[in-house]
């Protein structure tokens, strides 16, 4: 029996590479959702997630893994997406929004699906900077200080964006609910 204990007593120590990959795997759902919330087109999400992984892997050795990783990942996702959007025109962004609005079709059976689709459509109406704060605070439930740190803005700036973003989001939801954007 001793040999059995010996065989199980020395698990291989995780290398930084395997730890990084495990972290990416653990947060892949979150990353895809975050990219979608931030307005990435469905066909771009996989590539953008890979870009996030490259950043994560490069910074892994200097990353404080004792802290929650999601705010960090959100900050990376936000910057990558923002840079990506800057390469494209704003009009393309709006075109994507209209395309996504198709999720609000009447044949959507589940109400929760409809509400999520409505929320996503409304979020796309917000400017990226305010959308990021609203998503982080109201969906990811990240404290405002961590949001400010992740997005490299002041706390008051984060509060201001949240306040204005929420107003815009509520207005967008009302407009979409009334069917102004559709039919």
């Amino acid at each position: 029996m001793g040999y059995l204990r010996l065989a199980h007593s020395a698990p291989p120590a995780p290398t930084p590479e395997s730890a990084c990959l495990a972290a990416f795997e653990g947060e892949i759902d979150y990353l895809f959702t975050t990219l979608k919330r931030l307005g990435a087109a469905p066909h771009e999400i996989e590539d953008l997630a890979q870009e996030i992984f490259v950043v994560l892997y490069r910074q892994w050795r200097t990353l404080d893994t004792d802290r929650p990783i999601r705010p960090y990942l959100f900050g990376v996702a936000f910057r990558i997406l923002y840079a990506h959007h800057r390469r494209r025109t704003r009009e393309v962004l709006c075109a994507d929004v209209d395309a996504d609005d198709g999720a609000l079709s009447p044949e959507g059976s589940l109400q929760s699906k409809q509400t999520v689709a409505l929320l996503m459509a409304a979020l796309q109406r917000l400017p990226v900077s305010r959308r990021a704060v609203v998503v982080m605070h109201d969906l990811d439930e990240v404290p405002i200080t961590d949001i400010a740190r992740s997005l490299a803005i002041t706390r008051f700036g984060a509060y201001a964006r949240l306040r204005k973003g929420r107003r815009e989001l509520a207005a967008a939801v009302r407009r979409l609910s009334k069917g102004e954007a559709r039919i």
Binding site: T33, R37, L162, R166
Partner: peptide, 23 residues
């Protein structure tokens, strides 16, 4: 106190929106 109260209608949407679907 710095954080504004969210719209109650919006709260419902946000509640559903917090779910992270599995890839």
């Amino acid at each position: 106190s710095h954080i504004p109260q969210a719209d109650p209608e919006l709260d419902v949407l946000l509640e559903d929106g917090r779910v992270i679907p599995r890839v």
